[in-house]
Design a protein around this nucleic acid. Structure first.
Length: 490
RNA sequence: GGUAUCGUGGCCGAGCGGUUAGGCAGUGGUCUGCAACACCAUCUACAGCGGUUCGAAUCCGCUCGAUACCUCCA
C-alpha cells in the first residue's frame, strides 16, 4: 500500500483514512443481485468496483473476508397488502418452482462474473438459507421495543427508533421532512406511520415462498437479510459495506436502523457506494426497461450495440471511470475502451521482449509511486490507468529503440505492470484463453510461412494471411525485427 | 416538495487554488512491399453571471440545465 489508503465514506460524505477494526483483517459486505433476471451492465459495476477493493486490500497484505449475498427470497413489489414477492411472481408466470428460477439466474450471474474476471467472494450467502437468523434478529428488535406486530406482520417503528437514534444518518434525510413527504398513503395500511417498514410480512395464501415464524407464516422484510447475514459472517460491526448508490435509501438506511434496534450497535465503519451506468443520460435499469444484458454485450446481439464487446473491454470501460461518478454507455466510448485496452495489453507482451541497457531515461520508481497514490486516493482507477499508459509509452519507446532503460528499472517496470494490470485491475490478455502453447506454436508456423511469402514477393499470400487472421481477431504486427502477433479484444 | 450528485475540448472521462491528465477520434511526419502496430509533433475545454484571491475548472453566491433517491432496482 506504501501509503495511507483513503476511502470516501457515504456516512461522512468525505474521504477518510482507512484503518481496519482488527489489525490486518478486513470484513467487507456487498449487496449482490436479486436473481430474478439476467445480469446486465449495471450489475457489472458494483461487482467490478468491489472486486478492485477486494484485490487491492488482499494484495496489500490484508486478510479479507468478502461477503456478497444472493437475494433469492425476492423483495416486495410494493408495501401495500397486495405486495407480491418478485421471485414468486416470475415463477407463476413461467410455471416454475421459485428455486428453479433462482438457480437459473444465479448460474448466469456467476458465469457473467467469471467472464468479467471478478474473483468469487469468500462467502456468498443466500437469503433463503438464513431465515432463522432473520427471525432471531426480528425477535431482538421487538424485545428492544422498536418493532410491533400487526396481523402476522412486524414493522419497525421508525418514530420510536428516532427518539433514541438518528434515523437518516446515511442518506441525509431527517425524519420530519420524510414524514411530511408528499407521498400518498393507501387507506388500508397497517403501519402506525408510513415511514415504518416491514421486517416480517404475513404471507397471503397464494404466496409461494413462505416460512413459519412466531408471527405466523410469512417471509422476511426487504432489508433483513443483509443485516442478519452480515452479522453472522462479519460480526455486529464490520469494516466496509458496499453497494449501488440506489440502495443508500431505503435499503442501507434500514440496515443501520435494524442493527441499532437489535444490537444497539452501528453495523458499518465505511459505507461505499458505486454510481450508476447510464444510457442516453438515464439510469440503466430493469424497471426502466433500458438495460442491456452482459450476454448481449459479449455477443453483440442488441439493437443498441454496433458490435460485440469482450468481457475485458467491459471491465476496462468501467475501470476508466471513477466508481462514484455516473458512466454513460455508448458504442463510441466502448470502442475507445476496446482500442485502449488493446494498446495496454500489447505493451504487456512487448515488455517481455525488450532488453535493458546501461543507460536509463526513466524514473520508474516515481511512476510506481504515482500508481500507488492513485489507488490510495479512493481507488482512483482512471488515474491509475493514465499512469499505466505512461508506462506503455516507455515500453514502446524502448522497443522502438528511441529510448533506453537499465536492468533495474526494467525489472521494476515489469513488476509494476504485473501488479497493477493483472493483480489489481484484474485485466487479462485474450491470448491467455485457450491452449496457449499450441496457439503459440501454430502462430509461429504461420508467421514463418508468411515471411517466406514476403521474401519471395508473394504479397497476395502475405496479405491473405494477414487479413484472414485479422478477421478471427489476431493482429499481425510487422516490425524491423520480424513479425509478431496479438490477440485483439473487441 | 425533501435529500444528494453533477454540468470539462469531436466522444468517453481525470482534476480537491498555481505545473501536459489519460484513452479514442482528427491532422502532419517517421517506419512499412502496402497497411496495421508503434514512435514524434499537433488542434479543438472547463454551462452562464457575479464574488473571494497575487492567481479559480478547482472556494462562495446566484441563474440555467441534467441526473439519482424518497416504491423493487447495481
Amino acid at each position: 500500500m506504501k501509503n495511507k489508503l483513503y476511502i470516501y465514506n457515504t456516512l461522512s460524505r468525505k474521504k477518510e483514512e482507512f484503518s481496519s477494526l482488527i489489525k490486518d483483517y478486513v470484513g467487507m459486505y456487498v449487496c449482490g443481485p436479486t436473481v430474478y433476471g439476467d445480469p446486465h451492465l449495471g450489475h457489472a459495476r458494483p461487482a467490478i468496483t468491489f472486486d478492485i477493493v477486494f484485490r487491492y486490500l488482499q494484495n496489500n497484505n490484508y486478510k479479507v473476508r468478502y461477503v456478497r449475498n444472493i437475494t433469492d427470497a425476492g423483495h416486495l413489489e410494493n408495501d401495500s397488502d397486495e405486495g407480491e414477492d418478485k421471485i414468486s411472481k416470475k415463477a407463476r408466470l413461467e410455471q416454475l418452482e421459485p428455486m428453479e428460477i433462482v438457480q437459473h439466474y444465479t448460474i448466469s450471474y456467476h458465469k457473467a462474473m467469471e467472464h468479467l474476471n471478478c474473483l468469487p467472494p469468500s462467502i456468498e450467502p443466500r437469503a433463503t438459507g438464513h431465515i432463522i437468523e432473520q427471525i432471531e434478529m426480528i425477535k431482538k428488535i421487538i424485545k428492544n421495543g422498536y418493532a410491533y406486530e400487526v396481523n402476522g406482520s412486524v414493522y419497525l417503528d421508525v418514530r420510536k427508533y428516532n427518539e433514541d437514534y438518528n434515523y437518516g444518518v446515511l442518506s441525509g434525510r431527517n425524519l420530519d421532512d420524510t414524514l411530511e413527504g408528499t407521498r400518498k398513503l393507501d387507506g388500508q395500511n397497517e403501519k402506525r406511520s408510513h415511514v415504518d417498514f416491514a421486517i416480517w410480512k404475513n404471507a397471503p395464501k397464494e404466496h409461494i415462498m413462505k416460512w413459519p415464524s412466531p408471527w405466523g407464516v410469512g417471509f422476511p422484510g426487504w432489508h433483513m437479510e443483509c443485516s442478519a447475514m452480515s452479522e453472522k459472517y462479519l460480526g455486529k460491526t464490520f469494516d466496509i459495506h458496499g453497494g449501488g448508490n440506489d440502495l443508500t435509501f431505503p435499503h442501507h438506511e434500514a440496515e443501520i436502523t435494524q442493527s441499532n434496534a437489535a444490537h444497539n450497535c452501528v453495523p458499518v465503519k465505511y459505507w461505499m457506494h458505486n454510481n450508476m451506468i447510464t444510457i442516453d443520460g438515464k439510469k440503466m435499469g430493469k424497471s426502466l426497461g433500458n438495460f442491456i444484458t452482459l450476454a448481449d454485450f459479449f455477443s453483440g446481439s442488441h439493437p443498441k450495440l454496433k458490435q460485440e464487446y469482450s468481457p475485458m473491454t467491459i471491465r476496462f470501460f468501467i475501470l476508466q471511470a471513477h466508481y462514484r461518478g455516473t458512466l454513460d454507455f455508448s458504442n463510441k466510448a466502448l470502442q475507445a475502451s476496446s482500442k485502449g485496452l488493446n494498446k495496454l495489453m500489447g505493451a504487456c507482451e512487448t515488455i517481455l521482449n525488450i532488453s535493458s541497457s546501461e543507460k536509463n531515461d526513466f524514473n520508474i520508481q516515481e511512476l510506481s509511486d504515482k500508481c500507488y497514490n492513485s489507488m490510495n486516493d479512493d481507488f482512483n482507477t482512471p488515474i491509475l490507468i493514465s499512469h499505466l499508459f505512461e508506462g506503455v509509452k516507455i515500453i514502446n519507446s524502448v522497443n522502438d529503440g528511441t529510448a533506453q532503460i537499465d536492468k533495474e528499472s526494467l525489472m521494476l517496470l515489469k513488476q509494476l505492470f504485473q501488479f497493477f494490470v493483472f493483480d489489481i485491475l484484474g485485466l487479462k490478455s485474450n491470448k491467455e484463453t485457450g491452449d496457449k502453447n499450441t496457439t503459440n506454436e501454430i502462430m509461429e508456423l504461420i508467421l514463418k510461412l508468411r515471411k517466406k511469402a514476403k521474401d519471395s514477393k508473394d504479397f497476395a499470400t502475405a496479405d491473405l494471411i494477414r487479413n484472414d487472421l485479422n478477421e478471427v481477431g489476431i493482429e499481425i504486427k510487422d516490425g524491423r525485427e520480424g513479425s509478431s502477433w496479438q490477440a485483439k479484444s473487441k
